[in-house]
């Protein structure tokens, strides 16, 4: 479980995260939703240590991330996997080398053991046989899957995904969502996903937190969303007239 306590972050005069406290449960896909600029990415980056909060703490199963010494931090980082919005694959490396990179850097496994693990991860994300391709030779959806394979190669206990569906067509986005959800359940890991895609919320949003202007406005499950009376959340969910019409027709939204 990951717990964020009273996180605050400002850039200059602007406070972008305002005393956010949240719990992310193990074995579940925890979604953080909100409009662009609501502070989702800053929150995620604070959770993984890429941006240091001005105050507050982040606890990984009780361990305070920002109080760890260098060795403890390195140990914890080995348990963290992250999928970036743009996949962040290293252009000069093949798919296989990208996935193998964390093992090359931090493990003493043999070549054969690494090769087996890479093959397993690529097969798990449905990319068997693409080992020798470069990131530029595969599609955006495939790049995301390579990113997932790289994120899970060290068997992480915590998986972070920043906008995993951005730039993908709805069907590929659904595949990525399902993949992340299945990996979370199979490995009983804590997964945190930043998204503004309502399809993701309805598909895999086991716990959902809604951020608006850096403030945590609402928490609940996907089942609770439609019943919520939070105006901000309501505006966010039903921003699309198409969805609004569908729900009205189905007599879900009154």
């Amino acid at each position: 479980m990951i717990r964020a306590n009273q996180l605050i972050k400002s850039f200059g005069e602007q406070q972008v995260i305002k005393e956010v406290s949240l719990e992310f449960e193990t074995g579940k896909t925890n979604l953080v939703i909100g409009r662009s600029g609501s502070g989702k990415t800053v929150l995620l980056k604070m959770l993984v240590g890429l941006i240091r909060p001005d105050s507050g703490s982040v606890l990984y199963d009780g361990e305070d991330f920002y109080s760890l010494d260098k060795k403890e931090l390195q140990h914890l980082r080995m348990k963290v996997g992250m999928l970036f919005q743009g996949s962040a694959l290293f252009d000069s490396m093949t798919v296989e080398e990208n996935v193998r990179f964390p093992m090359d850097m931090f493990t003493h496994l043999t070549k054969l053991e690494k090769a087996k693990r890479v093959d397993y991860c690529l097969e798990r994300v449905g990319l068997k046989g693409n080992n020798k391709k470069f990131p530029s030779e595969v599609s955006g959806g495939m790049q995301k899957r390579v990113g997932i394979a790289r994120a899970i190669v060290l068997n992480p206990q915590y998986l972070f995904c920043d906008e995993p569906n951005s730039g993908l067509d709805p069907k590929t986005a659904l595949l990525i969502d399902e993949l992340i959800h299945d990996i979370t359940v199979e490995n009983n890991i804590t997964t945190i996903i930043n998204t503004h895609d309502m399809n993701s919320v309805m598909e895999i949003g086991e716990t959902v937190a809604f951020l608006s202007n850096g403030v945590l406005c609402w928490r609940g499950s996907k089942a609770d969303i439609l019943k919520s009376e939070n105006d901000n959340l309501h505006d966010f969910i039903f921003a699309s007239p198409f969805i609004q019409k569908l729900l009205e027709d189905a007599d879900i939204l009154k």
């Binding site: 980056k45 993984v48 240590g49 890429l50 931090l73 390195q74 980082r77 080995m78 963290v80 992250m82 970036f84 919005q85 743009g86 962040a88 290293f90 252009d91 990179f101 964390p102 850097m105 931090f106 972070f160």
Partner: peptide, 13 residues
Amino acid sequence: QKEHIDAMEVMGV
């Protein structure tokens, strides 16, 4: 810019 450095930092590099 392409978040490669962030990706490495998260891994602990």
